[in-house]
């Protein structure tokens, strides 16, 4: 199991009497897309927050690239290579799309205490940022402020920001949220290729996307993974259908 990129063991988090995460085990292996699905309130967001460091678990551990990162803060985990996107776009709205990505590249390089040279003159920052924008199809929108981007473009920018971090694992929190059919289809194709760069932990409601992308699917219900298996396994599992997929 030591070849796992991300390994979560016995993770627990209670809010009052509510067990949002209840002895949860989960891993992410090289090259795979591991989707986590579950009904609303199953604890998906709480799980993501604990993986990324926004929320401290009550007990259990999170290992990333063989480091125990349970006690690290958000920025430290990002520096180690944990790249996450937000369910609700979290952008720097006053900055242009390009400047958003440039700052991400700057974060990746650890150059944020350079005080003497203008950031705008840093052409290597600009080039790498422009590359990330081009990859998500925003190359024409670099100069537009993030506040003026459409919802779909903001989702694209979220992805560009995480690409700029060159992460060793992607944690994608509902990347399809609010995207149209066309956008979802494009993004699905994009993520299909992305897995070759780094494995993806994908939390997603869009079942078409999940079923077409995932190598493994874990089903989260009441803070517990009740089942992990391939797409076919999940489709055929009675427990999963009862808990989540309903009667089809």
């Amino acid at each position: 199991m030591s070849d796992c990129i991300l390994q979560i063991k016995n993770l627990c988090k209670k809010f009052g009497e509510l067990k949002a995460t209840d002895g949860l085990n989960l891993d992410l292996r090289p090259g795979e897309i591991h989707a986590v699905i579950g009904p609303n309130g199953a604890g998906k967001s709480t799980l993501i927050k604990q993986i990324c460091g926004e929320l401290a678990p009550d007990s259990g551990s999170i290992e990333f690239l063989s480091h125990d990162i349970t006690a690290l803060d958000v920025a430290a985990r990002a520096k180690l290579g944990l790249g996450r996107t937000f369910q609700i776009s979290s952008l720097l709205l006053e900055y242009s799309a390009l400047r958003n990505v440039m700052l991400a590249v700057q974060g990746f390089r650890g150059a944020s205490y350079q005080m003497f040279t203008p950031m705008a003159w840093d052409s290597s920052l600009r080039e790498v940022a422009m590359q990330a924008l081009t990859e998500v199809g925003l190359q024409q929108r670099g100069d537009v402020s993030a506040a003026q981007l459409s919802h779909g473009e903001r989702r694209q920018l979220e992805i560009a920001l995480v690409l700029a971090l060159q992460p060793k694992a992607f944690i994608l929190d509902e990347p399809m949220a609010g995207m149209g059919a066309e956008g979802s289809k494009k993004l699905t194709e994009f993520l299909d290729q992305l897995r070759h760069r780094a494995p993806i932990l994908l939390v997603e409601h869009d079942m078409d996307a999940v079923f077409s992308l995932a190598d493994r699917i874990s089903v989260l219900v009441y803070g517990k993974i009740i089942f992990t298996g391939s797409v076919a396994d999940v489709r055929n599992n009675a427990q999963v259908r009862a808990a989540y997929l309903g009667e089809e």
């Binding site: 990324c52 926004e54 803060d73 958000v74 920025a75 430290a76 990002a78 520096k79 996450r84 937000f86 979290s90 952008l91 720097l92 709205l93 006053e94 900055y95 400047r99 440039m102 700052l103 991400a104 700057q106 974060g107 990746f108 650890g110 150059a111 944020s112 205490y113 350079q114 005080m115 003497f116 040279t117 203008p118 950031m119 705008a120 840093d122 920001l161 700029a164 971090l165």
Partner: peptide, 25 residues
């Protein structure tokens, strides 16, 4: 105008984002 200033003004706009790109606000 510096790299530092870009990060500082980002801290005003959205600390969550700043941390997520590896810069401790």
């Amino acid at each position: 105008n510096s790299h530092f200033g870009a990060a500082l003004q980002a801290a005003r706009q959205n600390e969550q984002r700043l941390a997520a790109i590896g810069i401790r606000p």
